[in-house]
Design a binder for these strands. Structure first.
Lengths: 224, 224
DNA sequence: GTGATGCTTCGACCGCGGTCGAAGCATCAC
DNA sequence: GTGATGCTTCGACCGCGGTCGAAGCATCAC
């Protein structure tokens, strides 16, 4: 018996198959309606609605109403990071799959984690941003250096904090088991990658697939 | 409906109050017996035993039999990291506690995370080890540099890999939301801190409290 | 061998929470 | 206004899983 944060409550929210499927679907970063999430989870609309209200009450989701459409999304990158951590353990202890499959390999290279890039490319990128001193580790935070601020501005990437969200944040990568970049800067970089058409989102997957020229451009800008 | 790692199964293992209490107790790194864990969880011995077999089957625990005593411990630093991530979300979405209390503050400064140090001090230490190039980020891993190897050897810290466990690993800190050092090196450093009596473990808590001189010694060796 | 200790297994109980059909509510188009 | 769409609420059902006492099993001390 101990007080402290109610970890059982949070874990049990993720611990139902229908809710886990919904959260997994939302890891792609796109907000979805109750009908879409019911389909993802394989349950009826009333059941999905009941799950969604539980996830809302637990603080794991946000809701944006647009007319008669109601879009559910993950509450934060922190929630996404927790789900990544659970996926990591599930992968590690789960039955070894015979062949990981091409989609799985693509996910390890680059994928969406809520609103930012994850995978080997993302971890390598954060390492290089530190090496080039565009980002600094300081006072237990990741901070944008002056040269980093001008670097990203020159690329047309907005580096200003929005609504209480930090610019830079670390997020643990389940496939690499190292940190990648989250926060508004992480989200802005992913936006740029997609906007520049350096990479495209795989349909019905979190995988991010770079084109040959897009990969070169990405590496020149972020990995050089 | 989707295939993939069974995250609901792992999360539901953590999602029961009794099991969550047990896992929380094991975050201190000390392996405990079924009776001790039953006490922690506030359930009877038969109930605790049933929970423990479920956690074992799910791959979250390891078991070491010593005569008629059976010691349960967390299966890996990865499992510990997942629990830290869940704690982080529970803290963030949970009711804001009126006064965090001194023990809570001490936990944020330094605490045990399974077998290694976590908290502000641990995050600062990993940053400095990178700055001093004793550790290197390379190929999506953390590697010990040659100078790092001789540095730690000189301190009497064994830096050899043991039984398929990596020497260096990142683990996300729930209070700082940045990486600290896990792996055999992370464990060896915590061992040294305790062995040198630079700090002591708080009873019935994960907090690690440095003595004034111990803190100076730690900062001289790892934060300078 | 005998008795003690530590834990697991068995069996029975029970209630929490997931489930969906039907009804209700809100917003839309026209 | 009327009908359609999208979602939530209500109500009833049901079964999974948590619970513990009693019994059983394994290892210890002597």
């Amino acid at each position: 018996m101990r007080e402290g944060p109610d970890i059982a409550r949070i874990a049990s929210l993720v611990g139902d198959p229908a809710r886990a499927n919904m959260l997994n679907a939302l890891m792609g970063g796109t907000a979805l309606t109750a009908s879409e999430l019911a389909l993802e989870a394989g349950v009826s609309l009333p059941t999905a609605s009941s799950h969604l209200s539980k996830l809302m009450e637990g603080g794991l989701l946000t809701l944006a109403s647009q007319g008669r459409h109601r879009y559910y999304g993950l509450a934060s990158a922190q929630v996404a990071g927790m789900i990544e951590a659970i996926i990591g353990v599930a992968e590690a202890v789960g039955p070894k799959r015979v062949r990981p499959g091409p989609r799985d390999a693509a996910m390890r290279v680059a994928r969406v984690c809520y609103d930012h890039l994850a995978g080997e490319q993302a971890v390598a990128m954060l390492d290089r941003l530190f090496d080039r001193k565009l980002l600094l580790r300081e006072d237990n935070e990741i901070r944008l250096s002056p040269s980093g601020a001008s670097h990203f501005s020159a690329l047309g990437i907005d580096t200003h904090a929005k609504a209480r969200r930090p610019v830079c944040r670390a997020c643990l990568d389940w496939s690499v088991r190292r940190s990648h970049l989250a926060g508004t800067l992480g989200a802005a970089i992913l936006d740029k990658i997609i906007a520049e058409k350096w990479a495209r989102r795989e349909k019905d997957s979190r995988a991010v697939v770079f084109s040959p020229t897009g990969r070169q451009a990405f590496e020149r800008v972020f990995l050089s």
